[in-house]
Amino acid sequence: MLEAAIGISVFLDDHASWDTVVAKFRARVPAYIYLTADGSYPKGIGSIDTRSEIVSYWQGQSTFPENGIAQETCRDFTHTGYGISAISHIAETTRIQGQDLYPEIADRLRYALGFHSRYQLGESVPSWLCGGKLTLGLGPVTEVAFNALHNRMGIAMTNTQRLTDQNRPAGSNNLFVAWETLTHANNPA
């Protein structure tokens, strides 16, 4: 929804709407991607702010020993990929419009991509993560963020690079992402 809203704000040249979307994005990203610096559990969003509410919202994930776990990791990687993709698309839109949000979200985004790429590439799932069982299927979602973080910002992303290279050329999932190798692979702009 935020990805659509930022696009609508640009199309309408609606600065108030833009500001609302950016504020929601800034609140939502830390509540979607966990960093150990957040504390023993992820940041809340809206009225979801107690540990038990957050654990329930995070599909029962109750321990958070690593950077990059996402709110939908234990749901499935497909929906997690949609979230990561939307985050990168919004960051890309804001950058193009002159308000670059990548620096604010770079650590969360790179850790989320690296964390999920590891398991998508076949790493064994530890028992603490989603009860030891993941539903894979990240989809063709790494290209935009990988280009921004690795190619433009110079951040090393070994697992994400491996997965991105393995999936090239990225096609379409027929829903939210399409042909992003064509538009973003090694694009310095």
Rank of each mutant, 00 (worst) to 15 (best):
G139C: 02
L2D: 13
F25D: 10
G60L: 12
A156G: 02
G132Q: 03
D76Y: 02
K133S: 15
Y32A: 09
E143M: 08
R26H: 11
A170I: 10
I90Q: 03
L35H: 08
A170L: 09
A170H: 11
Q59R: 15
G81H: 04
E53P: 01
A170E: 14
R95F: 01
A145T: 00
I33G: 01
I105W: 02
S52Q: 04
N187P: 00
I90H: 05
I6S: 08
D49L: 12
C74F: 02
H184R: 14
I33E: 00
S47F: 04
G122L: 04
F77N: 13
D14M: 05
H184G: 00
H89I: 09
R51D: 00
L134M: 06
I105E: 05
T183A: 13
Q61G: 04
V21P: 11
L101P: 04
G81C: 09
T135P: 01
L182K: 12
Y34K: 11
N187A: 07
F146S: 00
R26L: 07
I45P: 00
A156H: 00
P140I: 13
N187L: 07
R110K: 15
A106P: 06
L149Q: 03
V55C: 03
L113W: 12
G131P: 03
I105D: 08
T164R: 14
L121T: 13
L121E: 09
I33V: 15
H184M: 12
H79L: 06
V141C: 03
G46S: 10
R75M: 10
P169C: 07
A112H: 08
I48S: 01
V22A: 14
R162W: 00
H79D: 14
Q71F: 05
R118E: 07
R26G: 10
K43I: 04
G46L: 09
A16S: 13
N67W: 10
V55K: 05
G98I: 01
P103M: 09
P42S: 08
E123T: 15
W128E: 11
Q71M: 04
Q161R: 09
A112W: 10
A106H: 11
A37F: 06
S17K: 05
W179D: 15
A189P: 00
M153A: 10
A23V: 03
P65R: 05
L134S: 11
Y57F: 15
M153R: 13
L35E: 00
Q161F: 03
N67I: 01
S117R: 06
Y32D: 12
E53N: 10
R95E: 04
I8N: 03
E3T: 11
N159P: 01
R168K: 15
Y111F: 15
H79I: 14
E53F: 07
C74M: 08
D76W: 02
H150F: 09
I45V: 10
I33M: 12
Q61Y: 03
D49E: 12
G7T: 04
S9K: 00
P188G: 13
